[in-house]
Design a protein around this nucleic acid. Structure first.
Length: 561
RNA sequence: UGGGGUGUAGCCAAGCGGUAAGGCAACGGACUCUGACUCCGUCAUGCGUAGGUUCGAAUCCUACCACCCCAGCCA
């Protein structure tokens, strides 16, 4: 694998190490909130945090940012851990939860109160909003802002003891209601929520807010560089304020970078959850989802995703990456590592009329054109074969080099055949093709003519039946998220096409779930993680092969109107 | 019209005062028993705009423009 590319964060870290900041240590963390599944955007952050630590001989923690029990649950915690491991990263024994620090957080809050840096506020959320002011007008001080320390302490303890209802009181930092930065206008530190927490059960009915929790958690874990996305930039002064007031021994450095956006998809947990809840997809791991679980099921490899994350870089510029880049990383990895096989997706039977009925030839084909170590497989050749319906055309477009009436084509790894007769049923539908073969063409070029086309095939008698699920992008529009629009309008009605009765070459028997193959001339496929069995194979299309012919044909059709 | 950010090709992105890397896409070609892979070539007198400083500016200065984020007791 190539070396991890440098970026502006690595530059900062190199400088920090040179200046012996944080004693020259590098310690990062990946801090997911367990309120949904991880998606490709998170992969960017995971890769950044873990590889940054690796690059500088440091460590990376996993820490669940679980301060909002209303939205979080333990199922998400498990899924997140599994996804990160699958991606190829390991946090060893450094698995933390913000909720692990609730006691400490509470003590520090009392300290803040004692120091006159925080107060208990009785404003309702609605009133607080009014007092906060607007982007252009300063806020007003809460009537409780000058409440005596002893009283604040008592009220805060009563909040903790469960004496009040949700929203009745909050603990606020005493900073500056005039600040042009809204985050500094006496932000809420603790709120009352009578809610069972997936980690702490019913121990607490007050929960700390992100801004208060995150910086302290970082400091307690000895994090040196706290990497987060751009929208937290305005929170940095608050991050620093909290740590400065508390005088904790370490003061991590928050550095923001741009989150990942990819065209033709949505990338917010809210919208992804909606797709799941509205039944527009089969679940968080639907192969069309940009979730890591979905991509895994689709057949993506961890290294393709990691390579992609390296390729897109890390900057502070908002951007939208072309999904073609992701697919490029995918094909690049799959091409190298996937064994080849033949599978006929839309079977059309052909009979080699001049081939004996009882004859079977066992052909040996390499599993990979460039990697002989992957070995060979055996493929039976007989009189009756399936080819793909799309590989035969009675009225071929210009440039068509597959099978046509009276024309020749190479059967991959076998003979050159000629289509002698098209057989139809009473409705005029083609039912089979009668062909002849040139016995001298196995492993040899035909004499005196050129045969350009090569098509794949499977012996009728030996074929394995399979279900193949053809996936395409979930959205038709480059930016389904566009402002003022509803992404539902852009859902691609043809994002899933299920093909039954597909024919696999017999070497594919006993396929295991998650096995990946390139079906020659079609694309990369994976045996479905959940639905596939050796008895009833189910394959998912991961990504098609690049198809310059198909593209050129599309353009021809567009021109023709 | 407050504050914080960002502008380099269709997309991503190097560049850090010495004369615009690389990748994706696209296009043209070579090779090919996968219309794949691979290989070769083309693709920014130009770096949001306008001025200025300098022998020299994408890099420094000034002004302007565009876009993104912030008014949750979400993260």
């Amino acid at each position: 694998m190539s070396e991890t590319p440098s970026n502006f964060i690595h530059q900062i870290i190199r400088e920090d190490i040179k200046n012996n900041k944080h004693e020259g240590r590098v310690h990062t963390r990946f801090p997911p909130e367990p309120n949904g599944y991880l998606h490709i955007g998170h992969a960017k952050s995971i890769c950044l945090n873990f590889t940054t630590a690796q690059t500088f001989d440091g460590l990376c923690n996993l820490r669940f940012d679980d301060t909002n029990p209303e939205k979080e649950n333990a199922e998400y915690v498990e899924a997140i851990k599994e996804n990160i491991h699958w991606l190829g990263f390991d946090w060893e024994d450094r698995e933390f939860f913000a909720s692990l620090y609730f006691d400490r957080l509470y003590e520090l809050a009392e300290k803040l109160i004692e120091d006159g840096k925080a107060y208990v506020c009785s404003l309702s959320p609605e009133q607080a909003r009014e007092y906060r002011g607007t982007l252009t007008e300063p806020g007003k001080n809460s009537p409780d802002r000058e409440r005596p320390v002893a009283e604040n302490l008592e009220l805060f303890r009563r909040m903790k003891a469960g004496e009040f209802g949700d929203g009745e009181y909050s603990l606020r930092a005493k900073i500056d209601m005039d600040s042009p930065n809204m985050n500094m206008r006496d932000p809420v530190l603790y709120r009352i929520r009578h809610q069972t927490h997936h980690q702490t059960g019913d121990k607490w009915c007050i929960y700390p807010m992100y801004d208060y929790t995150h910086c302290i958690s970082d400091a307690l874990e000895g994090i040196t560089h706290s990497l987060c996305s751009l929208e937290f930039e305005d929170h940095r002064p608050l991050y620093d304020w909290v740590l400065d007031q508390l005088g904790l021994p370490s003061h991590p450095q928050q550095i923001e970078f741009a989150r990942l956006n990819i065209n033709y998809t949505v990338m917010s947990k809210r919208k992804l959850r909606q797709l799941v809840e509205e039944g527009l997809v089969s679940g968080w791991d639907d192969p069309r989802m940009p979730t890591l679980a979905g991509m895994r099921r689709r057949g993506y490899t961890p290294s393709a995703i990691r390579n992609f994350c390296d390729a897109i870089g890390v900057t502070r510029t908002n951007s939208v990456v072309d999904v073609a880049m992701l697919e490029h990383a995918l094909r690049e990895d799959l091409d190298q590592h996937s064994p080849r096989a033949m599978a006929v997706l839309r079977p059309l039977k052909i009979v080699i009329t001049d081939y004996p009925e009882d004859k079977i030839e066992s052909l040996r084909l390499p599993c990979h054109p460039k990697n002989p170590e992957m070995g060979e497989r055996e493929i039976p050749f007989r009189r009756e074969l399936y080819i793909d319906r799309n590989d035969f055309e009675e009225v071929p477009p210009p440039g068509f080099k597959r099978l046509i009436s009276g024309g020749e084509v190479r059967l991959r790894g076998a003979y050159v055949i000629k289509c002698e007769e098209v057989i139809r049923d009473s409705r005029g539908e083609i039912t089979e093709l009668h062909c002849t073969h040139d016995a001298a063409t196995i492993g040899a070029k035909p004499e005196g003519r050129k045969v350009k086309g090569v098509i794949h095939w499977v012996s009728v008698a030996d074929a394995i039946d399979a279900e193949v699920r053809l996936y395409d992008r979930l959205f038709n529009d480059e930016n389904p998220d566009r402002a003022g629009g509803d992404y539902h309008d852009f859902i691609n009605p043809e994002s899933l096409q299920v093909l039954k009765g597909c024919k696999l070459e017999p070497s594919l028997q006993n396929l295991e779930a998650e096995a990946r193959y390139q079906f020659e001339r079609e694309g990369y496929f994976v045996a479905d993680r959940h639905d596939h069995t050796a008895e009833k194979p189910v394959l998912n299309l991961t990504v098609t092969l690049r198809d310059t012919w198909g593209k050129s044909q599309q353009k021809v059709q567009q021109k023709a109107g």
